[in-house]
C-alpha cells in the first residue's frame, strides 16, 4: 500500500525539496527500501548497507517510534503517516 513519508530537512534535497513523499510497502522496511529506490540520494542515510535502520535517524509510524515496535518489520496500515527525523545526540 502507499503511505505518506514525511522527510527531515536534510533528506528533502534528495526528493526535489519536498517535505513529504509517497512510498509503497507493507512494512517499514519495505517502505524505506521503496523510498531509497525512488530517491537514490538517500542511500546510506536511512538504511545501512546491511539493510538495518541507520542509527542517525528515528522512524515513526504515526506517533510511535518503530524501535519500540517491531523495527523494520513493523506493519504499515492504510492511511498511516511515516515520519523520519534525525536522531539528535552528542556528548
Amino acid at each position: 500500500m502507499a503511505v505518506e513519508v514525511r522527510l527531515p530537512t536534510v533528506l528533502r534535497q534528495h526528493a526535489g525539496g519536498r517535505s513529504a513523499v509517497i512510498a509503497e510497502g507493507g512494512t517499514i522496511g519495505e517502505v524505506l527500501a521503496d523510498l531509497v529506490r525512488s530517491y537514490p540520494g538517500m542511500k546510506g542515510q536511512v538504511l545501512t548497507e546491511d539493510g538495518t535502520l541507520h542509527r542517525f535517524v528515528n522512524v515513526y509510524v504515526d506517533d510511535d517510534d518503530v524501535r519500540y515496535l517491531e523495527q523494520l518489520d513493523t506493519k504499515v496500515a492504510d492511511g498511516v503517516t511515516v515520519s523520519i527525523l534525525p536522531a539528535v545526540a552528542g556528548g
Partner: peptide, 19 residues
Amino acid sequence: LAASAKLYTVDPGEHLRAD
C-alpha cells in the same frame, strides 16, 4: 535519554511532538 554527564540523546518521542 542518555541521563549522563558526558552524553545526551534527545528523546525521539519528544522530538516528534516538538516537530
